[in-house]
């Protein structure tokens, strides 16, 4: 690849925009996956707590 070729700026910018957009998309998807997993764990713990407490109440 010849970096001194004409229009090289356009080539580099198109790869840059691709990396930025796909990177942002991937980060957004990872962040969502993480927050959903965290909330699910939280709800699981709370549910276990509640079951334990209601179990004590009936016992």
């Amino acid at each position: 690849m010849d970096f001194s070729a004409p229009h090289m700026g356009f080539v580099i910018s198109s790869y840059a925009v691709t990396i930025v957009v796909l990177g942002a998309l991937a980060l957004w998807i990872f962040a969502r996956a993480r927050s959903v997993a965290k909330r699910l764990r939280q709800l699981d713990d709370e549910g276990a707590d509640r079951r334990r407490r209601s179990g004590q109440a009936t016992a």
Binding site: M1, D2, A5, P6, H7, M8, F10, V11, S14, T18
Partner: peptide
């Protein structure tokens, strides 16, 4: 197209 053709690989 010169080096510009390389845009094709992402476009």
């Amino acid at each position: 197209q010169g080096e510009t053709v390389r845009i094709m690989y992402v476009h």
